[in-house]
Every structure is written in C-alpha cells, then in structure tokens.
Amino acid sequence: MLEVRGIHAAYGAVRALEDVSLSVGAGEIVCLLGANGAGKTTTLNCISGIVPVTQGRILFEGEEVTSERVDWLVARGIVQVPEGREIFPGLSTQDNLELGAWTRRRHNGRAAGLERVYELFPRLKERAAQRAGTLSGGEQQMLMIGRALMAQPRLLMFDEPSLGLSPILVQQVFRIIRRLHEEGMTILLVEQNARMALEVSARGYILENGEVKLHGEAGSLATDPQVREAYLGA
C-alpha cells in the first residue's frame, strides 16, 4: 500500500535521511524504531508531505505521491497522528474532531464518523464542549487519534503515541491501535517503546542516523541480540 523507495531529506545542511526504504502492506502494522534524532519523525513528515524529499520516491496504492501537498495527501488517505500535543487548544473537543474531517467536508458521513470516534473514546464525548487546551495529556492524545480518524484514513501513521503517558494510558493507546488493526486499518507506527511496538507489529524497521539499519519480522527483531541490547534494554 505504501512504498518508500530510497528517500533522502535534509534540514538545510543537516542530513536527516539517507536512502530510507520501507513498505507497508494493506492491513498491516509496521513499526519504525530508533533512538532520538534517528529520523523517525522526518520519515513520517516526508510521507505526509511536510518535509520535502530531495531524492527518492514515495508510492501510495501504486501511485506516485512524492512531494504532493499535505492537504491533497490527507484527502488521499495518508493521515498522521503527530508527536506531542498538536491540538487546537482554544477550540472545543468537538470542533477539533470536526476539523479532522476538513478534507471530507463536502462528503456525507461526517456525523457517523463523529459517532464512531465517540464510541471508541467515550471520554471525548463527555468532554465534547470543553476547550481542548484544558484536556489532560492522555485525553489530548486520544483527541489527536480521534481527529486523525475523522479524516477516514487509509494509512494511519502514529508518531510516538505513548510519549509522556502513564503505563495504563499506554496500554489503552496500544489497545486502540490493535483494535484499529483488527478492523482493517493499515498502520505505520513510530515508537520509542520498542517492546510494545514489536508486540503489536508484524514487521519492523530500525533507523539509525537517518539510515535503515535493520528490518524484518517483528518476532525476529525482538530476539535479535543487537536490537535487544540497544532498544529493549536487555
């Protein structure tokens, strides 16, 4: 479904990605692991069209999408749940969600989408009228996931969804990811929490200094001695 072929990216003189290739099949969960600064966020942002790709190609459902505009890519179904708390703090929870459906604003079924998000996250329904900036960190993470779902993604990319959450909330986020997968969603998951990421994923890629160092089945990565030492703390 998604094919990244040898992309390069840079921030001015700083090289961020070198010849990164990866693929995600329809309905698959694939994780992208790596230390801080390895280039995980940059990879997602290249796919999302936020960071320009200097070399290489990105294909989505067989079609070239390299360097397309962000809004076009979102409408096409490539949607990102970004790192951190990227919400609209001054708008209500519900308005935040409705903006998630911006690229679907001329389509029907937005109300159904909202119902579905509220069914996944009952907490957001209770907080529908509350200003998003006053939600707790966990609720804001849920809100970002819900907002991404409102766009009716075909490929959903998570950037460190467990960052800064308590263990219980981390469990909850991974439960949601698993559930979305069971419902057929294609997922690219960036995580620091390598153990849990490898548990839910079928395959994984390990990024180091902007290059793919290893990739393979999640099971074999989890038992790889190098990976165990560097990312699983064993």
Partner: peptide, 20 residues
C-alpha cells in the same frame, strides 16, 4: 471560521489535518 482559528492556534496541526 474554525479552520482559520485552528490555523492561528497551531499551524502545524492544521496542516496535518489537511487545512491549506
């Protein structure tokens, strides 16, 4: 109108939901 407010509150997030 809400999209304009969203853009002013968090341009990055607005871009990510596909607001031009």
């Amino acid at each position: 109108g809400k999209a304009l407010r969203a853009t002013s509150q968090n341009a990055r997030a607005a871009a990510l939901v596909g607001v031009p």
